[in-house]
């Protein structure tokens, strides 16, 4: 079974980091993972996306044309990726910033104001961690405890201080629904 996830938003919203965290968690469960990030001049303020494939077997094509799960953090991304999700796929929407209507009616949609929740916690940039918590809970993707060592690994020495607020945001995400 291969789980294909596309995450899209604005540069600076941490969508690629979110993809990397999902990939790292999957890898720690001995699953094969592949992640293709958007790259190049798409920096803060532009658009950013990544494609994450998770499988029990070696992943043949890492490029995703039809995702199982689509995580959309802003309006332009909805427009761009709405067609790239399968029927009955899961669409996770950041309702703080996604105001456009969804054209398709064959999807499971869950929406939360991830950015507003992050702002309430004191840093809009941890919206991605709220999404991660929500995703893990909803998909029963892994034991939530795994996040602490993963976050410390990603933060390294330089960003160790940021782990606390990210953990807080993650837990907030777990509590949704």
């Amino acid at each position: 079974m291969t789980e294909k996830i596309i995450i899209a938003g604005a540069g600076g919203q941490g969508v690629i980091l979110l993809g990397k965290l999902i990939a790292e968690i999957a890898m720690r469960q001995d699953r094969f993972v592949a992640l293709i990030p958007s790259y190049g001049p798409e920096v803060r303020g532009g658009s950013a996306y990544c494609m994450v494939s998770i499988s029990d077997e070696e992943i043949s094509s890492p490029y995703i044309n039809e995702a199982d799960t689509l995580i959309i953090m802003n309006n332009p991304s909805l427009n761009r990726f709405e067609e790239k999700i399968k029927r009955n796929g899961l669409l996770i929407l950041n309702s703080s910033l996604v105001t456009d209507k969804i054209a398709r009616n064959d999807l499971k949609v869950i929406r939360y104001p991830f950015t507003d929740i992050a702002v309430r916690l004191g840093n809009p940039r941890v919206a991605n961690m709220v999404v991660l918590g929500c995703f893990i809970k909803y998909k029963r993707f892994s034991d939530p405890k795994i996040i602490t060592p993963v976050l410390y690994k990603f933060a390294g020495k330089e960003k160790k201080d940021l782990v606390k607020i990210n953990l807080k945001a993650f837990k907030e995400g777990l509590r949704l629904r």
Binding site: V33, P37, Y39
Partner: peptide, 10 residues
């Protein structure tokens, strides 16, 4: 190619 360079895998 660029995809191989940028792609993350286990």
């Amino acid at each position: 190619d660029g995809m191989l360079g940028q792609m993350l895998e286990s």
